[in-house]
């Protein structure tokens, strides 16, 4: 766990990025920011746009939080972070309809709700407010990528089972009977629960292996 302290600077930078992908994955390990994860993952396209929008907000707000970390008074820091985040979310909320009206309609209010995504405020408070700009960007990139990968994985399962397609490309052929429940709200809970199970299983196997090596 503490290999950051003994490794070279390049290695430490790589670790900052990679920890968001696997060891501290915001969705599967920290179970943060659940609302968009469950709400917009009924198709792969929606998941991808949502993931990228979140990543954009995460990276840009971490730059600002990190740049102003010595100016912002401690007492009003949370309010300041929220204002910074809300500014970038507004940008994302206006850019998405300009690119694709269709995606904007299916995402609905959930782009605006990125403001209250705890992953972003969590990273601002736990990382960007204490680290220089470069490191904060790396951390935000890692976390954003981890978040995007997680919700795209969820989107793949739900679109594949619920519709028989991936990115509207039919996978199972015309005779496939779709599991309608997977695109309904209930399916989101089931799919995420199943992914958490898979992750718990991987973790358990990893610690078992370590025990064997130690013994």
């Amino acid at each position: 766990m503490d290999n950051i302290s003994i490794s070279s600077p390049e290695q430490a930078n790589l670790d900052t990025v990679l920890k968001g992908l696997w060891k501290e994955n915001p969705v599967f390990v920290q179970v943060l920011g659940m609302c968009p994860v469950l709400a917009v993952t009924n198709t792969v396209m929606n998941s991808l746009v949502m993931g990228l929008a979140t990543m954009f907000v995460l990276v840009s707000s971490s730059i600002f939080v990190s740049a102003f970390r010595k100016v912002i008074p401690r007492q009003v820091r949370i309010a300041t972070y929220i204002l910074i985040i809300a500014t970038f979310v507004t940008v994302a909320d206006y850019v998405i309809p300009a690119i694709s009206l269709e995606v904007h309609r299916s995402l609905g209010a959930f782009v605006a709700l990125i403001v209250v995504n705890c992953v972003i405020l969590g990273r601002a408070e736990a990382f960007s407010s204490k680290n220089p700009i470069g490191k904060s960007i790396l951390d935000a990139l890692g976390m954003g990528a981890g978040f995007t990968i997680a919700i795209v994985l969820l989107g793949i399962v739900r679109e594949l089972l619920g519709n028989g397609t991936i990115l509207d490309f039919p996978v199972f052929g015309p005779d496939y009977e779709p599991w309608v429940v997977m695109v309904l709200p209930g399916g989101a809970f089931f799919a995420l629960g199943a992914w958490l199970l898979v992750f718990a299983w991987f973790k358990e196997r990893g610690s078992q292996k370590q025990n064997e090596v130690a013994a």
Partner: peptide, 22 residues
């Protein structure tokens, strides 16, 4: 079962509740 303890089982329960509310 040990693996599903915690958030896993809660999400499954929420899924069932959500189906009920439909």
């Amino acid at each position: 079962p040990g693996l599903v303890k915690g958030t896993g089982i809660v999400l499954m329960l929420a899924g069932l509740l959500s189906l009920t509310f439909m």
